[in-house]
Design a protein around this nucleic acid. Structure first.
Lengths: 195, 195
DNA sequence: TCTTGCCCTGAACACCCGTTCAGTTACAAA
DNA sequence: TTTGTAACTGAACGGGTGTTCAGGGCAAGA
């Protein structure tokens, strides 16, 4: 046997990425083998190398794609308005974006240490860019004189940690709708920055 | 060669645990081999099995010890007083306790998925117990009528995520002292619960 | 219909894994 | 000084690792 019936790169490629994402999130990058990923897709391990140069790059490209999507989606949702409006937009966006992407978030935060130094630097820069959009909102609120924030950098990290924590406990079949969660977290955020 | 000079279980045991803690935190449980841990301590891999039945138990006992210490220290620091006082005590305690234990915190949150199901349940129960101490404080504040918290369970998770996030960015050689951090986070917490 | 090349298999490469154990040595108690 | 045992070595076990590659089957274009 060699090439199998109905094999197409435009189908197999995404299936490999989806399987890798799921398995990395469930068991961790180091604990998942290329053979496991291949089995999940119904291939032999060697076939994966038609789609990725190596395992490291598979992880990196998943993380990079996630961060790129995050940044561009953020840029289009959190645009103009006064600082308070933009803060609310940011909170709503962050929650909505993260809620449906538990696996991606898990990997983006947990597997940083399994990236090669250069790859780490790339992802880290994107993460900082995302943090900076919130940081800029807090600075703007300070300039407008509406926020009460002693240290915008620290507050940024505190808020992002708080908001991202949602992914660790939220379940769609729980008693809270996404809108409920958004409201609770927006109120905490709002009060924390003194609005 | 066999037994080496100055070899003592009361010395080697803690050294193995310290090495495992450091390496697990740096590279992840799955990515660290028993041979790496042994090399760090200056032993052969086989010698580790005088101190742990297997690798899984080494991880579990590190996490268990951390959680036990956390709970007992918390119980002795956050005792009596009104809800606001206990909340401040909790925040101060959490920050102070977590600041010097970056490796332990990292493992306790990141390596849960590498625990066997029974071990996971044990650690998870301890984590819930810790969360419940904060939850009880929020409930007490509600009962006293001093906190403005719509959902104590969600607020608990939000606050703990926010506070624990400190370990991901705080560096002792930075521009902020532990007291500075405590003050910033206490103010955010205080305002978030409406005091 | 024939040919080109993409997609995949299956075997192999060299190496690392957790764990076990017979054997050896340093030390403490008698 | 002798003896018992705790502490450790070094080799071995079966199996898994990421990755490469020659070769073969399938589908699309000429």
């Amino acid at each position: 046997m060699a090439r199998t019936q109905g094999s197409h790169s435009e189908i197999t490629g995404p299936r490999i990425r989806a399987a890798a994402l799921k398995l990395f999130a469930a068991h961790g990058y180091a604990a998942v083998s290329m053979r496991q990923i291949a089995r999940e897709v119904g291939l032999q391990a060697g076939a994966l190398y038609n789609y990725t140069p190596d395992k490291q790059d598979l992880l990196f490209s998943l993380m990079k794609a996630h961060m790129d999507e995050l940044l561009s989606a953020c840029a289009s949702h959190v645009t103009s308005g006064d600082a308070t409006t933009r803060l609310k937009n940011f909170v709503d966006f962050h929650i909505q974006f993260h809620m449906g992407r538990a696996d991606e978030i898990f990997i983006a935060y947990m597997e940083l240490r399994n990236l090669s130094p250069e790859n780490f630097e790339t992802i880290e820069a994107l993460r900082r860019a995302y943090e900076d959009t919130l940081g800029a909102i807090l600075e703007a609120g300070l300039a407008e004189g509406v926020f009460d924030v002693p240290d915008p950098k620290v507050t940024t990290r505190a808020l992002i940690a708080m908001l991202t924590g949602i992914t660790t406990w939220y379940r769609p079949d729980g008693y809270l709708s996404p809108a409920d969660v958004s409201e609770i977290y927006w109120n905490m955020t709002r009060k924390a920055v003194g609005v």
